[in-house]
Design a protein around this nucleic acid. Structure first.
Length: 655
DNA sequence: GACACCAGCAT
DNA sequence: CCCGTGCTGGTGTCA
């Protein structure tokens, strides 16, 4: 077993970089080498570079912290080929301490230094010194415009691609490798203590690999003691997707550049107009939270709606919307608030659109990162960009603020900027009401389960129960909304008070508990369990810690208790969807390699296939996703939709 | 420049 | 206080 860590050049790998420092630790000795990856690199090649590469290649077990990140670097450095990690067998010898740490305690901050401090009770070598040293070097490189192939953020001046492979998809930002530090001529570094230059970095590299090694041992021991024979199965919940995520990140998501540019134009058009209007209505010279706060609550003396955590008067959308509705129609405040709300929406949208365009690689793909251990609950997180927060079409003010809605009606949909690459189609598979179904099943609420099985709408069903409607009656819009609040309250583990507050009905909770006795009992049992054990188990036995539990004596316990219900439900969702992804990827690999998973959005999987692909694959995928849920005892139907143009326009697939 | 706060987007 | 989990970006403050 060896531990491997890499330190990469400090700018964007997507535009090329100079060299990597690679550290290896086998439990006894630490060795390192710097591997130049650019043909023009001035980094010195260490004599034992080849030896290190061979050791990594032939190692039986490689332990890394956040393995996908370092493996990208190792591919860049030529240790592995870019296709190696596509094979699930490749990952059988990779142990990722981030997965171990997540299983050990899912609420820990999973950074190496934090885990080291927590469990090894060790200090890192002078991180401050490393940071300042590296920053000095970067500044020096920038200032003197040295002729090193260190990539630049703007990318325009650095066009070469390394190793003839697709290296555009990955961004890294970290330290300068030791060889680069050493190669700065002594005469050019008056502020840098010579001997320390690379020593600091190497100390850090050594600390990283040895700590990773020790953490792996610690976590393995803890996990085996706690979970015994189930350890492998539990670890597999995240490990099973290592190669799947590799492929997803590598191939990326197609961005429709034309639509994106058009959407940006459209945003600018409205922003210019609305900004002028806001400025002239308010007499302000700039629009920030602070100036708005003064304008509304001091100059205009509008009533305070709520306060922020720090005690400032809130100026969020909810507040502004209420003030807008309470204002005299056509008054200055009314018009200002309406325009400002619309302006903010457009500005937010523009922000997203520009980030998409900026993150795009040469061929027009975005390459979001997916983090299997990125949440407390086993759900995924996504970043650069976060593909899980791309807005659907819709006008949030359509119902209750026509003045605002009017401005937003032509607002572009962000999902329309994504879609299948030319010549392809997307298959978009959604679990229907997955979270609510999970809740019904884990709470063993038979009436709800029956309703689901009959194909009823969950919100309608609960509305009928609460308002004791006859079969012939349909719930009103308001009744449905209240039922929706109750349902979400169940899922989120909201407190009775909160549920009654959002629904606006006092005494609602006692109605609900009598209507759904098992659900109520489940919530109470969960709370009692948390009080005793400080954690919950979701389906499949994966433990989910509750970080606020330790503070229970200071009142945080109640919070943790309510969160516990939510953890079980979200955790089950995460586990099920991960299983589904693995099943679908296995299926595609063996039966239809032209297809692939493009992205995951919590209860939604998106696949890309060649246009006019055989329809049978739709139903096989649907069946596999449903199978994943049923393996955990949950019946959850999947609705397949087809996108031929954009993510925003999908058509239900008929049986 | 680092950091905290506030906000807004998703499921 | 009591609705969970994430990510990103702008603003303002502080050193």
């Amino acid at each position: 077993m060896i531990c491997v860590d890499t330190e990469t050049t400090g700018l964007y790998l997507q535009h090329g970089c100079t060299a990597f420092s690679i550290g290896v630790y086998d439990g006894n000795t630490f060795t390192h080498s710097t591997v130049p990856v650019s043909p023009r690199s001035r980094a010195r090649t260490c004599s034992h570079t080849q030896e290190i590469k061979d050791r990594i290649r032939s190692a039986e077990t490689i332990v890394m912290h956040n393995a996908r990140f370092d493996i990208k670097a190792l591919c860049e450095a030529g240790v592995f080929s870019w296709d190696d990690p596509v094979d699930p067998a490749f990952w059988r010898r990779v142990i990722d301490t981030i997965h171990l740490a997540h299983l050990h305690n899912s609420t820990d901050r999973l950074s190496l230094d934090n885990l080291t401090a927590l469990y090894l009770e060790k200090e890192y070598p002078q991180e401050d010194e490393l940071v300042t040293t590296v920053n000095l070097c970067r500044a020096l490189v920038r200032k003197l415009e040295l002729d090193w192939d260190i990539a630049r953020e703007d990318g325009e001046h650095c066009s070469f691609r390394m190793c003839g492979s697709n290296t555009e998809w990955n961004r890294m930002d970290y330290w300068l490798p030791a060889a680069v530090l050493e190669s700065i001529p002594v005469s050019l570094r008056p502020n840098l203590p010579n001997a320390r230059l690379s020593r600091v970095l190497l100390e850090y590299l050594q600390a990283d690999v040895t700590n990773t090694f020790e953490l792996a041992q610690f976590f393995f021991h803890q996990i085996l003691v706690k979970h015994g024979d189930k350890s492998e199965e539990l670890l597999n919940i995240n490990r099973q997707l290592d190669h799947v995520l590799w492929k997803m990140e590598y191939k990326g998501v197609w961005l429709r550049s034309q639509e994106t540019r058009a959407a940006i134009e459209s945003c600018y058009h409205y922003i210019n107009h609305l900004k002028q209007e806001c400025l002239s209505l308010s007499g302000l010279d700039r629009l920030t939270d602070t100036t708005i706060r003064i304008l509304l609550f001091e100059n205009w003396s509008l009533p305070v709606v709520s306060q922020t955590k720090k005690g400032n008067y809130s100026v969020n959308a909810e507040t502004l919307l209420r003030l807008h509705r309470d204002a005299e129609p056509d008054s200055t405040a009314y018009r200002f608030l309406g325009s400002y709300l619309s302006l903010k929406k457009y500005e937010k949208k523009l922000q997203f659109l520009q980030s998409y365009l900026n993150n795009r690689t040469g061929k027009g793909h975005l390459h979001p990162s997916f983090h299997a251990s990125g949440t407390n609950t086993t759900r995924f997180s996504s970043s650069n960009p976060n593909i899980q927060q791309v807005t659907k079409a819709g006008n949030p003010y359509e119902d209750d603020a026509p003045y605002v809605a009017n401005y937003l009606r032509k607002s572009p949909s962000l999902r329309s900027c994504f879609g299948p690459a030319p010549g392809h189609w997307w298959l978009d598979c959604d679990y229907s009401q997955l979270q609510l179904r999970i809740f019904a099943y884990v709470a063993n609420e038979q009436g709800m389960i029956d309703a689901f099985n009959k194909g009823w709408d969950a919100h309608d069903y609960v509305a009928r129960c609460i308002f004791s409607l006859r079969d012939t009656e349909t719930p009103t819009k308001a009744q449905r909304r209240i039922a929706k609040n109750v349902n979400f309250g169940f899922i989120f583990g909201a407190s009775p008070k909160k549920i009654e507050q959002t629904a606006g009905i006092r005494g609602l909770w006692s109605t609900v508990t009598s209507l759904f006795p098992n659900a109520h009992a489940f919530i109470e049992e969960t709370k009692a369990y948390i009080q005793r054990h400080g954690l919950v188990y979701t389906v499949g036995g994966y433990p989910l810690a509750l970080k606020d539990y330790l503070n229970k004596h200071t009142g945080e316990y109640e919070k943790a208790a309510h969160a516990g219900v939510n953890y079980i439900v979200q955790g089950a969702e995460g586990v099920i969807v991960k299983r589904a992804m693995r099943l679908c990827d296995d299926y595609l690999t063996s039966e239809y390699p032209e297809g692939r998973i493009v992205l995951q959005c919590h209860d939604e999987l998106v696949f890309e296939f060649p246009a006019y692909f055989p329809k049978k694959h739709v139903w096989n995928i649907v069946n596999l996703m449903e199978q994943a849920a049923s393996e955990y005892g949950i019946h959850a139907p999947v609705d397949p939709e087809l996108c031929t143009q954009s993510w925003n326009k999908s058509v239900k697939v008929q049986r």
